[in-house]
Every structure is written in C-alpha cells, then in structure tokens.
C-alpha cells in the first residue's frame, strides 16, 4: 500500500465550499527514461484519481506521464450531507488504492 496524506475537514457547514487535498507516494515513472542498465524503464503511472461523496463522484482527474512523482491534488467541493468521502487512485500494473474519511455536515 502506498502512503497517503489526506486533508479533509472533520466538519463543514452545509452549502459551504470545502477544500480537499490528497498526496500519494508513487514514482510516476514516465516510460521514457533509461534506467541504470540503459534500457528504457516501463511506464508506471497513476492513470486516474477520483473522489466520491457517499458514492457520487464529485471530482476526478486523469494523470499523464509528465506529472511529477508523488502527485498532490487539491480541489474544492460543496458540503452537502454528512457521509463518507472515498478517494481512489488507479494506475498501471494494477495499481489501485482507496481511502475513506467521514465528514459531518452541520446545518
């Protein structure tokens, strides 16, 4: 499992804009670089990131080879109902990781 640092507010006021931030440990090997043996290293990147609020996708991003290692994504969404935020990363070589956080929305 890759290390992940998430920043999610524990509580938010309904209707307010909240910022969510996600950092994950991943080499994001481009597929264009030669390794120490001189042979090109096979591509190994995260292809897609998504964040769902109680199952409904609120943000997603496609990632490409030019994105730096250990990608950091910060985005905003509107607080709706108390529930579970699910963060998923999917990539080459079957890479798949899911993290969840609870958020309480107050009126």
């Amino acid at each position: 499992m890759a290390r992940v640092i998430l920043q999610v507010p524990a509580t938010a006021v309904r209707g307010s804009v909240i910022e969510l931030r996600a950092l994950i440990q991943h080499p994001m090997e481009t597929g264009f670089r030669p390794g120490s043996s001189g042979e090109v290293l096979p591509r190994d990147i995260i292809r897609r990131f998504a964040c769902a609020w109680d199952g409904e996708e609120v943000f997603s991003a496609e990632l490409h080879p030019a994105i730096a290692a250990n990608p950091y994504l910060a985005f905003t969404t509107i607080a709706t109902e108390s529930g579970t935020l699910t963060f998923t990363w999917k990539g080459d070589n079957g890479f798949a990781q899911t993290e969840t956080r609870r958020i309480t929305v107050t009126p």
Partner: peptide, 13 residues
C-alpha cells in the same frame, strides 16, 4: 504545509 510536503510521506513510513 505538511499536507503538501512529499517528505512527510517518508516520515509517515
């Protein structure tokens, strides 16, 4: 910012 500093991933490890 500890949430943006990739070095924190190693600290966590």
């Amino acid at each position: 910012d500890d949430a943006a500093n990739p070095g924190m991933l190693w600290v966590l490890d």
